[in-house]
Nucleic acid binder design. Sequence first.
DNA 1: ATTACTGCAAAGCATTTGCAGACTG
DNA 2: CAGTCTGCAAATGCTTTGCAGTAAT
Lengths: 144, 144
Amino acid sequence: MQKSTVWENLPSNLKKTKQRQMILSALQDSPRPLSAPEILEALHKKGETCWLSTIYRNLETMVKTGLVSKSVLIEKNQIYFDLVRVEHNHYAVCSQCHTFLPIEDCPMEPFIQALKKKNFHVNSHSLEVFGLCEACYRQSEENK
Amino acid sequence: MQKSTVWENLPSNLKKTKQRQMILSALQDSPRPLSAPEILEALHKKGETCWLSTIYRNLETMVKTGLVSKSVLIEKNQIYFDLVRVEHNHYAVCSQCHTFLPIEDCPMEPFIQALKKKNFHVNSHSLEVFGLCEACYRQSEENK
DNA sequence: ATTACTGCAAAGCATTTGCAGACTG
DNA sequence: CAGTCTGCAAATGCTTTGCAGTAAT
């Protein structure tokens, strides 16, 4: 793994273990969020080994320290994790092939302001859009 | 249960069973979305019985027919179901006490338009906001 | 040396599935 | 009667937890 700034700047109470590095690297190499089992599989493909429980525990601590974000894919009812990157936090997910299409701007700001007025203190939000990507949409049209 | 329009207008391929009625009624009586286990509990409190698998199966068919909407509470990693009402679809959820605060307008429209331009065909979306409700926020401030 | 972390096993729980009998239209 | 639906049991699969040994600082 090309050691990233993220890695160099791990909070001091987090030790730099091989497993931690492998997990971060898997997330970094992926163009989309991954579930814990998917991370395991990705590591296996590289010939690396790690236990699922280790993956879960690490992801959870990384979420707490803000390195990683957590979301749920409702269609699979499974938790997905993503490196916190500046560029994007949200995805449109194809119901058929589960392609993740990153969404640029997040339209939530005005929203969060409105909640502030109601004395709700927002920490985080999640947003998922479902539908069909171009390819799957075409296919479904053809089958009509 | 006060028989609602929803009940009267069930799609003709859905039979009007006691269980279906009980489940709809539980959702109707609730000010917030419920998980399947919560629905079961609600029925028990009324002295009604029903199996969890029946609840799950019914909710799923109702989602398909558009009577009910489905969302995930990431903090509990559990699926929640809500009657599809005109008024609101989204909630702000308190991380502490899990109060659901309904959010009025949905800011997603411009968003969905933008995705159309990218040839992604949106079917549905989910949106959750997390944070602290007023009461829990005060409490957390006091404990500082 | 201290504290955090991992492997491993086992449990926990929400959710799904299969099937035979019961109910609805 | 035909097609759905339910009760029930059992399985599935993700996620969590406990503990003893291992590794990092």
